[in-house]
């Protein structure tokens, strides 16, 4: 007995000694040891800083409508980078740099909004379906099956057209179409946990279903879902950009990367004598979208390696 109790006890005072904090710092240290996660983190941090300091980096002409990209005249052909427009301009002389900077805000908005809403719906429906089972589970699962059977992009296009074009409609439609993935994932995680002994122990202690779900099931299942969600922020932005590119996004001149690529559709290929004359109009927004997606993917990958209990302490 006595030796059993004589395990090392390091006493640090205050907040840092709380085991939850220790766990977190342990994970964070491992997270920061991985070069890929540092690259991902840097990319996302840069984007975040751009989004936060957008009004400083590119002061809007109209403070009430900062997402409107300013333009110098109505000349149709894009013009190459110049001291006035460091990244050049698009059709009708919209400033690319301004569009990129304020587009970062749009991207974060799209990504977070859609993923958060999906997660929210997914956690609620998935927990109920997974924990209680029965007819509720049956109905929810058949609905998700229906969603899986429909081609995503086609459905999204049809719905956006039905609601009316615009960035907001894209967000709404992607929420409507996106929740089944999360619901399924959370339901699966919960089903695996539902009959574990510690859940039974909580029941035997008199805990109610809600308490069991919140205290016991979600903390043990949510991490893998959160990691997938963080990876999905990137791809969601990509899909939204695709819809914008198809002409379903906001009106031209709105600072959104997808919308910018869409505006430049006619200028992807230059005149016959110089095919690459307007490279900057597609390359810049395209490159930014790619970096954004890459950043979230790297972050999610690294987080999975660190937080996944199966990979841990081996």
């Amino acid at each position: 007995m006595s030796t059993e109790l004589k395990q090392k006890t390091t006493k640090k005072e205050g907040f840092l000694s709380h085991p939850a904090v220790k766990e977190f710092t342990f994970s964070a240290k491992r997270f920061l040891k991985n070069p890929l996660s540092i690259i991902g983190l840097t990319i996302i941090l840069i984007f975040a800083l751009i989004a936060i300091f957008a009004p400083v980096l590119a002061p809007p002409e109209d403070p009430y409508d900062p997402f409107k990209i300013p333009h110098d005249g109505w000349k149709t052909a894009p013009s190459p980078p110049s001291p006035e427009h460091p990244l050049g301009t698009m059709e009708q002389q919209y400033d690319i740099l301004y569009g990129i900077i304020w587009g970062t805000r749009s991207a974060f908005k799209i990504g977070f909004f859609i993923v958060m809403a999906n997660l929210f719906i997914g956690i609620i429906l998935g927990s109920l379906a997974g924990y209680f089972g029965g007819w509720f589970d049956e109905i929810i699962m058949r609905i998700t099956d229906m969603f899986y059977a429909l081609p995503f992009l086609v459905m999204a296009m049809a719905l956006v057209v039905a609601i009316g074009r615009g960035l907001q409609s894209i967000i709404i439609v992607m929420i409507i179409l996106g929740w089944p993935t999360y619901t399924r994932m959370i339901r699966g995680e919960i089903m695996a946990l539902r009959d574990k002994d510690f859940i039974l122990a909580a029941k035997a202690g008199g805990a109610k279903s809600l308490r069991i779900i919140i205290q016991h099931i979600l903390p043990n299942s949510i991490y893998s879902v959160l990691i997938v969600a963080s990876m999905n922020i990137g791809t969601t932005v990509l899909t939204a950009a695709a819809l914008s590119f198809l002409g379903l996004g906001s009106e031209s001149g709105y600072a959104d990367w997808g919308q910018m690529v869409s505006m430049c559709r006619d200028w992807i290929v230059g005149p016959p004598d110089n095919r690459l004359a307007y490279w900057y109009v597609v390359f810049t927004p395209g490159f930014v979208i790619a970096m954004f997606v890459l950043g979230w993917n790297l972050l999610g990958d690294a987080a999975r390696d660190v937080f996944d209990p199966k990979m841990r302490r081996k």
Binding site: P19, D197, L200, A201, A204, G205, Q215, P309
Partner: peptide
């Protein structure tokens, strides 16, 4: 009743919530 009737499970590594103190 739950207060008066309790259980100890077979495998303690399954019966304790791994994310609880």
């Amino acid at each position: 009743l739950r207060r008066k009737i309790q259980i100890v499970f077979q495998d303690p590594s399954n019966s304790l919530n791994p994310r609880m103190l």
